[in-house]
Design a protein around this nucleic acid. Sequence first.
DNA 1: AACGTTTGTGCAAACGTTTGCATTGATATT
DNA 2: AATATCAATGCAAACGTTTGCACAAACGTT
Lengths: 341, 341
Amino acid sequence: MSKKRNTTLKELSKELSLSISTVSRALNDHPDISQETKERVRKLAKQMNYVPNLFARGFRSRETHILGVIVPNISHLFTSTILKGILEEAELRGYRVIISESNNNEIKQVEMLNTMTQFGVDGVLMSLSRKTINVEEILKILNRIPIVLFDKVSSKIPCTQVVINEEEAAFNAVEHLIELGKQRIAIIKETENSYNSEKRYAGYLRALNKYGIPVRDKLILSTEDISLGNGRRLTNILLSMKKRPDAIFAITDNAAIGAIKALHKFKVKIPEEIAVVGFSNSINSTIVSPALTTVDQPGDKIGRTAVRFLIQELENPTNDVMTKTVEIKTSLIVRDSSLMV
Amino acid sequence: MSKKRNTTLKELSKELSLSISTVSRALNDHPDISQETKERVRKLAKQMNYVPNLFARGFRSRETHILGVIVPNISHLFTSTILKGILEEAELRGYRVIISESNNNEIKQVEMLNTMTQFGVDGVLMSLSRKTINVEEILKILNRIPIVLFDKVSSKIPCTQVVINEEEAAFNAVEHLIELGKQRIAIIKETENSYNSEKRYAGYLRALNKYGIPVRDKLILSTEDISLGNGRRLTNILLSMKKRPDAIFAITDNAAIGAIKALHKFKVKIPEEIAVVGFSNSINSTIVSPALTTVDQPGDKIGRTAVRFLIQELENPTNDVMTKTVEIKTSLIVRDSSLMV
DNA sequence: AACGTTTGTGCAAACGTTTGCATTGATATT
DNA sequence: AATATCAATGCAAACGTTTGCACAAACGTT
């Protein structure tokens, strides 16, 4: 039951009466080796079930073909969809993936980053923890190995960043509401200046501006923790106003669902009286009733793209920092919560 | 930007005018080394930011301190909750984790298992892909390194298995319905004989038997793919019967939600006319209305437990196969879909 | 015939760590 | 004084792979 040893190059070479180096080269398809020898070697290797010892190889070549991934919280549908994309793309290109959670804890995030580099990953894919303020440590590591950020990113870190086009997505969502004839559009966003929240807010403003709709401070609500409960709470506030809004744009599905729950309780007709739009296309958005209009973020595409850029950097190393920002397109999925005839 | 080299034992030893072996032993707290030396070494190591090269170490000792994890689908809330538990517990005990998806594909599952062992993981945690029939390859690998199965398990594989107590959980759920006074309780389960589905079905039967309620074939419905859509479809069948059931036990939340949607459409009162109980405590179960009564499966506990058993095996290797089955307790969460006053 | 070139192969070093054994000097035991 | 014991340290091998270089044989060119 204890770990048995694998076939080694040495054993193969003995069996074939060749040197270890020849066997190694034969298996690596080195041009110096004759076709005939290559075939003999490959045949025996297969027969003896030879598998290269990746540790020895990585140890020698300083390349592990392992990518590190750090995310705030793995059990979040959007995140795990991204992970799915990462896993698939990485595997396709012959890389393994090590995953870690930062639990939205900045200290732990740096710790993970450190053990990962210590461990010898070739590069790191990372979605930043909330309130990542002290980027100094991260920059230090960025000096040693390539990092690609996705989803939760920061302009303070000069590296490739893969995000959805938050601003445009929000713009489209709000424009959709305007096209329905809505004029008093409330927004539920985050208090702290997260990248995502800010961009979505910017999209909201641009849409209002484009159509000459005044921006009303009263309709702009913020919360620390953009959860279902807080969505409900803030909606209650909106409902208590003399002049109620006629639409709510929540920057996450959960908050939007909270809004729907609150509207339900007060028997407000959705979407006739107040339409609701969310953001994420989480599974819940189809389960709540009425089904929620929302922005679909193609998670797996984000993951795949991030991997592609990272590997690109790994395989064509340059000395100048890459600071490209790649924006992935989203699409608005219109459902009953904003479907008017 | 290219990978810089880390401080090595050699460099430390030169700086301290000690031999490499002494430095190594000092850092590993070997009893042969004097306290004084140990402190000198540790101090310089810290100062020079020494980190052991895990590859060299793993290479030498044949221990990587990496665990492999294979799951059918990472973006499934229950699965990612288990992963969370695995990550936390493994990290706590100084192990790294490599995660892979089998996508419910038996061939790929074996492939992943192979590359993982090839890669040198110390052990594997695995949730089986649907329709895992040919366990031969898995047994072969089980000969080389320890495997612990969780959630989707199989008695054909002699190893430690961590599961929830499916049978009892289902029993409790159905008993709850009976206590409400329900007598015609339908079940929606899977066609193929998955471990989970079978156990839950057994619990259903036991509950009926205990209370002397006849088992009616007509009320036992099966589907290949236990999805929301199929839950809806099968419920429609139930509704078309002359004598409708007065409760539905669906062996997954999604199917239960499908049932609720169907009942809604036909204006059936939940739970007065027909009560509904699901299984999983997915987020959706609180979002659907009425909120769904369901079985809470403590995912992170499953993950943690699985890791504990695996490490236990790793660190106390024996030659006899472990075939323990560990059952994790669940609890029934009663919500509106079965709340009668 | 002497010399380059090409082709295929082998030798040996290197990667960074751990560890069995040898070595040294000091101290305790007879 | 001779010997056994002990504590602290160093030497060197080993893990499996890759790779620069050397080498030998065969061939082509002058």
